[in-house]
Amino acid sequence: MSDIIPIGMTGFVVIFVTLLCAYIIFGIAGFGTALVASPMLALFIPIAKIVPLLALMDLFAALINVSRDGHNADRAELRRLVPVMILGSLVGAAILLTTRPEVLLPALGIFVTGYALYSLSGVKPQRTFTPQAAIPLGTIGGIFSALFGSGGFIYAIYLSGRLPNKESMRITQTTLISLSTLIRVVMFVFAGVYADTSLLWLALFLAPGMLIGVTVGRRITLNISKTQFLKFINVMILASGITLIVRFLL
């Protein structure tokens, strides 16, 4: 693993703790790993390794949550979102091959930030979406998942305006993330990314932190109210929007 992280045990401990915190967030919200972990991981791991590492770990984290609570997922919403998510992923891949996707960051960042601030303001806390909103939001989520490995907050915007039950929203969100990351992991497999065994060893080393994190996050979710859950989701959406804007500016 020295070719990935050449700094010794201290670096591994920092990364382990970072991933533990990131997967507590994931266990609560069903997304947000890259938002929390990427800035710290970038100090120790080449950026090209971060997305495939987190994709692999997100897939297993999501599968763990789905295996526990999959019966609570809203299948009607999954049927609406999954086809357009796949379509969006294909569009995102095409954009990635033909243009500079960074130009899309500020527009989405401003939209997401504005939406989160509006939701947190309490002006209209009981917002709802029609089923047709799945088409644009699911497609956009798929596009940004393919481009930047982070589209979960878009699905969260839609699901928070559709599902009244916080547990149903969390596990539906997690199911979408598992499907999205599966697509990315398969792409990385065919690209030969995981032929780098040091990356797989690193994921194995970090797995206990991921397992503890998703378990703690799940328990927190079960013990908070829907209002607290939605506020947490909107704070994560706000952080995602700000991160997109900063990413473009830097």
Rank of each mutant, 00 (worst) to 15 (best):
V91W: 06
S67F: 13
T172Q: 04
L120K: 01
M187Y: 07
A55H: 06
P208I: 10
L159G: 10
L238P: 02
T175M: 13
D58L: 08
L182E: 04
W201Q: 12
F188H: 13
I224C: 08
I157Q: 04
F205T: 13
I7C: 08
F12E: 14
A62Q: 02
L244Y: 01
L35N: 06
G138M: 10
A107R: 01
L43R: 15
A29G: 09
V82E: 01
I15T: 06
L96Q: 05
L238D: 00
A48T: 09
S178M: 15
A48V: 10
F248V: 06
L222K: 12
V36M: 14
L63K: 00
V123Y: 11
G30R: 00
D58W: 04
G152D: 07
T172I: 06
T174A: 08
L19A: 13
G217L: 05
I7S: 10
I7P: 00
V185Q: 04
D74L: 02
G8D: 06
D69P: 08
C21N: 08
F44E: 03
I154H: 01
V123Q: 00
S198R: 10
M1F: 12
L20D: 10
T128E: 13
I135G: 02
M1C: 07
Y23N: 09
V91L: 15
S225K: 05
Y155R: 11
R170D: 14
I45N: 02
T174S: 05
F144Y: 11
N223G: 11
S89N: 10
S225I: 03
I245Y: 01
L202E: 02
I171H: 03
A156W: 07
I24F: 03
A29E: 03
G92K: 11
T215N: 11
F44M: 04
L41V: 02
D3C: 04
R219K: 15
I242F: 12
I5T: 08
L199E: 01
L202W: 03
S178R: 05
S240I: 00
A22D: 09
T139Y: 05
V13L: 15
T215C: 01
L53T: 10
